[in-house]
Write a protein that binds this DNA or RNA. Structure first.
Lengths: 85, 85
DNA sequence: CCACATTTACTGCTATAGCAGTAAAATACT
DNA sequence: AGTATTTTACTGCTATAGCAGTAAATGTGG
């Protein structure tokens, strides 16, 4: 992963019929950030990446052997939560 | 997501019995980056996040309705691939 | 082919992530 | 409870992501 993120983004953008510029606008970021992300010329920030993935309808999932334990105990404190960056 | 990344990392770090400093060392990053990530005082870079997740054995998965199409056609060009940042 | 339009690639400047060092807080020990 | 030790929180400086603007490349119609 991450070596691949750029091409995943490019693939989804093309399938959506968007230009780098349009995707950037929709995501609320600069067009150069989209370019950099697709070419991994720079290591994009998480918030920037998530804005892009949201537009392209790509979901991010974190998985680990003990993730369910985390999820249980985090439900106790905060029932439902927002998915904003 | 992302609002949660910090606490996911902290939870897994604690479960692993690591200090911020130790995790940083193992991940090959500075301790302040771990602090910033857990407190989301700054929007961490992807490569930094992935280094941390690798140490904590947390996997990242990207999901979308057309991801399988991408995976098929990316297998054609590059058979097996590396998972480095 | 040649203009023209659209898209992508690149550049140099500004904002901010990452860092080592230091202070504060928490924990352990006697 | 006092103090040493370990861990976390924070600060100011340096490296780099993000940006708008520009150049290059790619398409498109005549």
């Amino acid at each position: 992963m991450l070596g691949q993120i750029g091409s995943v983004v490019k693939f989804h953008r093309k399938k959506s019929g968007l230009t780098q510029h349009e995707l950037a606008k929709l995501a609320g970021i600069g067009k150069a950030a989209v370019y950099d992300l697709e070419h991994q010329s720079k290591s994009t920030r998480i918030d920037t990446l998530l804005k892009v993935l949201r537009v392209l309808n790509i979901e991010v999932k974190l998985a680990s052997p003990i993730m369910h334990v985390y999820e249980e105990q985090s439900l106790e404190t905060s029932k439902n939560f927002r998915s904003e960056p």
